[in-house]
Design a protein around this nucleic acid. Structure first.
Lengths: 219, 219
DNA sequence: CAGTTGCTGATTGTTGACAAAATACAATAT
DNA sequence: ATATTGTATTTTGTCAACAATCAGCAACTG
């Protein structure tokens, strides 16, 4: 018998697909902050009933992307840059530090190669001015670190903040100094390569500061 | 015309009540970790249809209290003490520090009185061995601080971790040194009374340290 | 007897219809 | 004209029926 095996079939329910599509539409800016979400509209556009739509709304509400007012309406959330910078970003760095500290031994050549590729892609994206791709790569870089962990709480917490962060970046990307993005992440990756926890912590903290300073209008 | 006005009627939808009741049942331990949630059972017990139940499940899933396996089952989540201590608790302290720092001017006599009452209740609860009440008071103490803030992100983030923390405490309360609980919070409150940010930060960090934790948001 | 295949009942996923509530707007009264 | 009330329409909330999927077990095959 051959060694061939079929790939596990993704058992995605309709509600999951709806959730993902709706989330994408929000993050892409097709449904900008303040947009009203009418269940029937979405349902008709997607060709499904309102049930899955409503369940998706409950999830996205908890992800901070939607605001739901009982018996009235649900709208796309608006995010305050200050809150993202001072609350969500520090949480991201906290989890990241926790993971790197605990899974230092998982930092191997395969990991470095993957991260380096992301950083290289960043340079390309900057040169070509692909801003939304740059946001994706930034998220991907940090998520790849968190994926070293096996703790369920790591990804759960990440998911509860990542989409707000992404929405924030997408919205404000034009205010950021794109040129620094590649270098900042390269520095972080270089610190990982040393496997020196002290240096890594310094680099993570510096990354937090530099992200802070990316915003032209802070302070 | 009189100045009398009616209190705004709480317009709670069925799904909200279901969500709250289900959450309470989990936090009370009536549905211990691992318990399977059968939609129809819950629906019949509550006398509602499955719709609201399913929406509640999606919310509680995002709150980290339920695990849902598509087409199979949803069960009450089990929490690892280590993850709560090293990931969720530091997040709590981070938000707390953010709020205290920013809303220092809201620390007034009314606030102190409210917090002191909670601490006093803690002593009473310890003496009478009311463990679940003690957990409630601990949560309440910290939540009252966060309520000083107006930022939506503060409460949203808090809600995404508080129930996991509560579940953890409820489960492991017997392992904790109850006698210290009143003193630890009294110290924290006393620090707030000084309105000295340096002292307050020290106190918050000490509160965290008393749970044997390292923190990375300090500089 | 091991291993596969096909049933059966239980449970979750989805739907369309109906009920309740909110909004917009016309009608009315002052 | 302005403010209030009533009404129509839209939208959200809830329900009960139906479809898809799964776990367990019996029947079959070699």
């Amino acid at each position: 018998m051959s060694d061939f095996t079929f790939k596990q079939q993704a058992n995605t329910s309709l509600r999951e697909k709806v959730t993902n599509d709706l989330r994408e539409a929000i993050l892409n800016g097709h449904l900008p902050p303040g947009s009203r979400i009418k269940e029937m509209d979405i349902a008709e556009q997607m060709g499904v009933s309102r049930g899955p739509i409503r369940e998706a709304i409950r999830q996205l509400e908890r992800e901070g992307l939607l605001l739901s007012y009982p018996y009235k309406e649900t709208v796309v959330a608006d995010l305050d840059a200050d809150e993202v910078q001072n609350i969500l970003m520090p949480i991201r760095f906290h989890i990241e530090w926790f993971v790197v500290k605990r899974y230092l031994d998982k930092l191997d050549d395969s990991f470095y190669a993957k991260q380096q590729e992301i950083v290289d892609d960043m340079r390309a994206a900057v040169e070509q001015g692909e801003k939304s791709r740059l946001v994706d790569l930034d998220i991907l870089f940090h998520q790849s670190i968190l994926e070293l962990a096996t703790e369920r709480t790591v990804m759960l917490t990440w998911q509860s903040i990542v989409n707000q962060i992404r929405l924030h970046f997408t919205k404000n990307i034009s205010f950021y100094n794109l040129d620094n993005m590649e270098k900042d992440h390269q520095d972080l990756l270089d610190a990982f390569r040393t496997k020196d926890l002290g240096l890594i912590q310094q680099a993570i903290l510096k990354h937090l500061d530099s992200d802070d300073n990316l915003l032209c209008f802070t302070k």
